[in-house]
Design a protein around this nucleic acid. Structure first.
Length: 426
RNA sequence: GGAGGAAUGGCAGAGCUGGUUUAAUGCACUAGUCUUGAAAACUAGCGUGCGGCAACGUACCGGGGGUUCGAAUCCCUCUUCCUCCGCCA
């Protein structure tokens, strides 16, 4: 959520930037509308504050008058307050209506894209900032996609998942389970080595948390909702981990705050279909290690680059061919100012699979979260928040299985062997 | 699930027979004095949002609603925590 003060002071820049998201002039007019509403709010509030001030003053006098036995004067003051009260009540009703309107508009405005965000509205406009195309692995004709390999080695069973739950809930078995756990431990150890504090958060969150990181109201249909208790299954560890600092004011010297956590992630993926959803490409439950940083505003883009660099080291250690995309305005998620997507090449499918998304949210989340730090002058400022997948497991497994298949079995990358306990999966 | 008690500013903890409390006091914290330095002592400052250039005004005592001229204080409701009982990894 943008701050109204920022819309006031940077309206033109914001408008220009939002055009990258495909906003036209008529949509941009809500910037003017929200400023006008805020003007109304200010004038109503000033008027109301004055009335309240008068009421408080009179109430004090009434108390004193009664004490000194001047009942008739007290009753006179009382009746004045009575008339004040009705005006105050109408003002307050008016003000809460205005505030609701402002809030609704602010919630409907996505984050302002950074200057680096490429123009364009579709996937094809994403800018490839790093590409391995020349060195893509070549597999023999007999190469199998990961869902076939899963059957062949009895490590991955989609039918059993359907039996237990439904489509998109795969079951891992035998060395597949072990591989899953190995990846989780590998990613967590790497993150710990980089100074990220490990968190084990709840997997269900309340509405306030879902709002804090922007899942609500934007992605309501994508989350599993436990209506009986008003809770949501987390679509990513970002939600509970970032909300750890909701409504907090931290000391400037506590920044940067670096957090990581492994959780299963639950996504309804409503409306998905086709070959994109086959096998592990898109599932309703998958495991992910998330990294989150809360940083000083001056440092957030530097931090974004560091986080991108960190995710690169993971993919390099796993020996997977990857490319990095800088998302264009149309592909940028609602809350993000700048996002880099990582895609891994899945050789048997001949497909690029998104395995990580690293974003800078600037103050978009922190404004909603009320996540501030106290600066040197003692003033409270919104911090910047960032997060990234490091990494999402299901698609990594798909790529590992496909790219590393040999006649003897699946070769496990060197870096992972101490975690799996085997060099080859067969 | 049942019965009782509680929720106050970073922490502790008054106020809770409604009116100089727009929240005492202590600790912690910040700055200064003193000191070779530190500690101690002393002095001052020290919650958040909104409006305002400022002075200042206003709102916030778990959330929401109500009574009243006036609510941290009374009433209703929700949430959370504690104690006891029941059930249970």
């Amino acid at each position: 959520m943008l701050q109204i003060s920022r819309i006031r002071s940077e309206k033109e820049n914001i408008a220009t930037a939002l055009k990258k998201r495909g906003w036209d002039d008529s949509q941009l007019d809500i910037l003017n509308r929200v400023i006008a509403l805020d003007d109304d709010r200010k004038s109503v509030q000033s008027a109301t504050d004055e009335l309240l001030s008068r009421r408080n003053q009179l109430s004090k006098e009434i108390g004193n008058l009664f004490k000194s036995g001047k009942a008739s004067e007290a009753n006179e003051a009382k009746s004045e307050v009575e008339t004040l009260k009705t005006t105050i009540a109408t003002n307050e009703t008016k003000m809460s209506a205005i505030k609701e309107d402002i809030e609704a508009i602010l919630l409907s405005i996505p984050n302002v894209p950074n200057i680096l965000v490429p123009n364009g509205l579709t996937e094809s406009d994403n800018e490839i900032t790093k590409d391995w195309t020349t060195t893509l692995p070549e597999l023999p004709e007999s190469a199998l996609p990961h869902w076939e390999l899963g059957k062949k080695y009895d490590i991955l069973d989609f039918e059993l998942g359907v039996k237990l739950t439904g489509a998109g809930f795969p079951v891992f078995r035998k060395k597949g389970s072990r591989l899953q756990r190995a990846l989780i431990n590998f990613f967590l150890d790497e993150a710990n080595n980089q100074g990220y504090e490990e968190i084990v958060p709840p997997l269900l969150v309340n509405e306030d948390s879902a709002k804090g990181t922007g899942q609500l109201p934007d992605k309501e249909g994508q989350m599993y909702h436990v209506t009986k208790d008003g809770l949501y299954l987390i679509p990513t560890a970002e939600v509970p981990i970032t909300n750890l600092y909701r409504n907090d004011i931290v000391r400037e010297d506590e920044l940067p705050i670096k957090l990581t956590g492994y959780t299963p992630c639950f996504r309804r993926e409503a409306g998905s279909y086709g070959s994109d959803v086959k096998g592990l490409n898109r599932v309703h439950q998958f495991d992910k290690i998330e990294i989150v940083q809360i940083v000083h505003p001056d440092k957030s883009y530097e931090t974004l680059d560091q986080m991108v660099g960190y995710v690169e080291t993971l993919l390099t250690k796993l020996e997977l061919p990857y490319r990095i995309l800088r998302l264009c305005g149309g592909d940028l998620t609602y809350a993000s100012a700048l996002t880099y997507d990582f895609e891994v090449y899945s050789a048997a499918q001949k497909k690029w699979l998104e395995v990580s998304s690293v974003s800078n949210f600037e103050t978009f989340q922190s404004n909603r979260l009320k996540l501030r730090y106290k600066n040197a002058e003692g003033k409270n400022q919104l911090a910047h928040t960032l997060n990234g997948s490091a990494l999402a497991l299901a698609r990594i497994i798909a790529a590992l299985l496909e790219n590393n298949q040999t006649d003897e079995g699946i070769k496990i990358p060197e870096a992972l062997r101490k975690y799996t306990g085997f060099d080859i999966l067969n």
